[in-house]
Amino acid sequence: MFDIYKEMWDRRKMIHALSLHEIKKEYAGTVLGSIWGLVTPLLRIAVYWFVFSIGNRVAEPVGGAPYTAWLAIGMVAWFLLNDGFKLSQKSFRSKRSIIKNTPFPIAILPAVQIMFSFYTHLILLVVILITLAVALQTVSVYWLQVIYYDFAAVMLLLALGSVTAPLVAISKDFGRFLDTVLIFLFWMTPILWSVENAGRFANVVKLNPFHYIVQGYRDSILYHSGFWEHPLYTLYFWVVVLVLFILGNYLFKRMKPIFLDIM
């Protein structure tokens, strides 16, 4: 039931090496190199901050935390989810030439893209955390809980990637559809707005597992609350991940012979 994840685990060194190569490749030929991995997200955070707190003047402190810090932390989590999801669902398609020409354990390709996103994310996370520590003048032991949420995020991404990548490999239309869904998710996940504003829809919004991660980040950094304090929600999240894992394994086995032929 978990064959492909076992394969990923067995090949973890290969995944690591390939994701580092991805970073190298991503910025090969640029003069500034991996600094771009920092500049782009920081600029996006700045843009949202400008639009919401200067342009619209709707940026009230959220639950006692400054809006800018609240936004930045949410965005850091979102960038990981966004990049990991976007790259992993396309991973079979984007590595088509390798799949077609090299004997290679292709089941690990979504994991390579996710680890690539994760390593880029780590740089941004460190920069943001240092900035926050300086700006807010506090550091808490709760910050370490980010490790748990990062782990949860990677697991969620692996599950989602395993489900979507074989489908995208078979249907290009499905890939387009997922791109649209991702934009929708960005606005539907409480990243720029607080989940309390959703009122009676709050519980519906919370069904989105991405929210578990984004909220967890804010809990760890800003509100100092642990994931054990809402056990039901944590249980819900892991059940979703488990179901996706099983589905992903099934879909990969089922679709692999088909997409190898039609890609």
Partner: peptide
């Protein structure tokens, strides 16, 4: 599988490609 073109990335140097392809080959 001796295939001269796959797994070679044009933006990276020959040296990096050696490692890249090596990883792909396991």
């Amino acid at each position: 599988f001796l295939d001269v073109s796959s797994g070679i990335d044009p933006e990276m140097s020959g040296y990096d490609n050696i490692f890249m392809k090596g990883v792909l080959l396991g």
